[in-house]
Simulated assay, not measured.
Amino acid sequence: MNFLHTDWLSRLDYGEAWDLQKKLIQEIDREERNDTLLLLEHTPTYTIGSDRHPEHLLYGKEELARRGIALYEIDRGGDITYHGPGQLVGYPLLYLDAVGLDLHAYLRKLEEAIIKLLADFGIVGGRKQEYTGVWVGDLKIAAIGVKFNKARTRRGFVTSHGFALNVKKDVEQEGFQGIIPCGIDEYGVTSIETLTGSEINVEEIGRRIVPYFTEVFGYSIPIAAETLSS
């Protein structure tokens, strides 16, 4: 059977979570661990992906330090984005066999799981043809940026990085005002709380996305979580 391990990590420093991803990727590659979905919040952080457009960061080093926002240049695809409290971050670490591999289909599945979740709240999520992520009209509610790590012990890839879904309305102002999100300056961002007018718990959103993730990706009932450390 095709099992998925899920784990809620609460709030975690970005660097610690990145190191944990690298460790688990190796375990999944060696078939020592089932595919894994990490769900968490981050402390305030900007990450710049492989597109490398530092001009899309509007704050200098002193302002970043004053606001307590970390900055990482990382190995996922895409441009700059914000991670912080009030946002559900998901890191799917999944083995993808090379036979019939469709990398674009993987991205569409991530989007689909989020779109299904939003529908629970009466939110009509969708896609923009030219951009990755999930949108509500012209407002982005979830960013997606991934990496496909070539497996060393078998034929295929193990995914890393993933999605960031804006849950709390505060996240819209706390960090996005300091960047041009994903290099897209003509559109803004939104959140589940803003669109519903209700207070929403991030951990609850993490719990509710798991059934949609397992449905879209074809997993059996998730394995019970265990404590992870980097």
Rank of each mutant, 00 (worst) to 15 (best):
N2K: 15
L4Q: 10
L4V: 07
L9E: 04
Y14F: 10
D19K: 15
L20G: 09
Q21V: 10
K22H: 14
K23A: 10
K23G: 03
L24I: 14
Q26A: 15
E27L: 15
D29H: 13
D29R: 09
E31Q: 14
E32W: 08
E32P: 07
R33L: 08
D35Q: 11
T36P: 08
L37W: 08
L37S: 09
L39S: 03
L40E: 11
E41C: 07
P44A: 05
T45V: 15
G49Q: 06
S50L: 15
S50Q: 15
D51R: 14
R52G: 02
H53Q: 14
H53M: 12
P54H: 02
L57S: 03
G60K: 00
K61F: 00
E63R: 14
R66T: 04
E73D: 13
E73K: 14
E73I: 12
R76F: 14
G77P: 05
G77N: 11
D79K: 05
I80Y: 05
Y82H: 07
H83N: 09
G84L: 09
P85L: 12
L88T: 01
P92N: 04
L93N: 03
L94P: 06
A98N: 13
V99R: 15
L103C: 03
Y106T: 13
Y106M: 11
L107H: 07
L107W: 09
K109R: 15
E112S: 14
A113P: 11
K116Q: 15
I123K: 02
V124G: 01
V124C: 01
G125P: 10
R127L: 10
K128Q: 10
Q129W: 04
E130L: 07
T132W: 13
G133P: 09
V134C: 04
L139I: 00
L139S: 07
K140P: 05
I141R: 02
A143V: 01
K150E: 08
K150C: 01
T159A: 04
T159C: 04
S160F: 06
A164G: 08
L165M: 03
K168N: 08
K169E: 13
K169R: 14
D170P: 04
D170V: 08
V171L: 03
E172G: 08
E174T: 12
F176L: 06
Q177L: 06
G178S: 07
I179M: 02
P181K: 12
C182S: 01
E186N: 09
G188R: 00
V189T: 05
T190R: 05
S191T: 07
E193H: 06
L195M: 13
S198T: 13
E199Y: 01
I200L: 01
I200T: 02
I205W: 06
R207W: 04
R208S: 06
R208P: 07
R208Q: 14
P211Y: 00
Y212K: 03
F213Y: 15
V216N: 12
F217W: 06
S220Y: 09
I223Y: 03
A225V: 03
L228E: 12
S229W: 11
